[in-house]
């Protein structure tokens, strides 16, 4: 299990990286944390002819608050986000979701940009970014463009990033603690494994505990993380009760977007059933932990 040979480049600016992407063509790959890529290269399932290592682009490693958004550089390590007081305060669901990623050594190396571009539909940050309507800032030869999380994931392990583009920044709306209920729940075979199904829920509530807006993202049920639109619509404008939660969970599982595959670890039927169970448990957890529910 040794990787194939490749040319290796270490740009120190985004511009240099983009130029290298242009000059090296289709067979070049960006390496950030490398926690999925290097494993795939060791299996020779990925055989890039050139690696463009962006770890030296220090400008891409930052977390800051701008108005009602958290602005995160693509090279920010998962562990940095997990322990960041700013993230914990302004977007606690992200910090929580990250604790579900593999084990500590993976999070010390893995980056937010890397996991988003890798686009695994069961991965924690992609699912959470869909729940949060995160925005992805992408740099390319002709400038920058911004995509919503909903547009960013195309299919299994495929994002909307073009071969000559680089994800440079992620913008995530901050969650006002007094009016937000949230949860991140999953089922995995072992502790630290990729989820079989995961559900990220964010509810915006008014002072009376009425849900103004619900955002529920599900992973492991389709080639990309998907939103439970029917469930979200059902919850909007409703007071949160056990029965509405159950109804929403049923709607989530019955959504046309929930179309899982079977594999060795779990059948499609199981995944579908878990969509309901986890949506229900997730919404309950969100509501129970919400200050305003007391």
């Amino acid at each position: 299990m040794k990787p194939t040979a490749f040319e290796y480049f270490t740009p120190s600016t985004v511009q240099e990286a983009l130029q290298l992407l242009e000059s090296q063509g289709d067979e070049a790959k960006i390496i950030a944390g490398g926690q999925s890529l290097v494993a795939m290269m060791n299996f020779r399932a990925a055989r890039p002819e050139a690696l463009i290592d962006i770890n030296n682009i220090k400008d891409l490693d930052y977390i800051r608050e701008e108005e009602d958004e958290l602005v995160i550089g693509a090279l920010t390590r998962e562990r940095t986000l997990e322990v960041s007081p700013l993230v914990k305060e302004k977007c606690p669901i992200l910090a929580k979701a990250i604790t579900h990623i593999g084990h500590l050594p993976i999070r010390f190396r893995g980056t937010i940009g890397g996991t988003l571009v890798h686009a695994d539909p069961t991965a924690e940050i992609p699912i959470t970014s869909v729940a949060l309507d995160a925005k992805m800032k992408i740099a390319g030869p002709s400038g920058e463009r911004v995509l919503n999380a909903g547009e960013f994931f195309l299919t299994y392990l495929t994002s909307a990033i073009e071969e000559n583009e680089l994800l440079v920044e992620v913008r995530i709306p901050t969650l006002p603690p007094k009016t937000t209920a949230w949860s991140y729940v999953d089922i995995s075979r072992r502790f630290g494994d990729f989820a079989i199904v995961a559900v990220a829920s964010v509810l915006s509530l008014d002072n009376d505990g009425v849900c103004k807006e619900a955002r529920i993202a599900m992973g492991g049920v389709a080639p990309t993380p998907v939103r439970a639109k029917e469930a979200e619509a059902l919850l909007a404008g409703q007071k949160i009760t056990d029965s509405i939660i159950e109804e929403a969970a049923i709607k989530a599982a019955e959504s046309d977007d929930v179309d899982p595959d079977s594999d060795y670890h779990a059948t499609a039927e199981y995944r579908k059933a878990m969509t309901k169970v986890l949506t229900q448990r997730g919404l309950k957890e969100a509501w129970t932990n919400f200050e305003g529910s007391k």
Binding site: R189, R190, F194, Y264
Partner: peptide, 16 residues
Amino acid sequence: CLTASFADYLCPTAME
């Protein structure tokens, strides 16, 4: 073979 990596051949961790 469906379990040719440690991501699919699941050895219990301390948590199990």
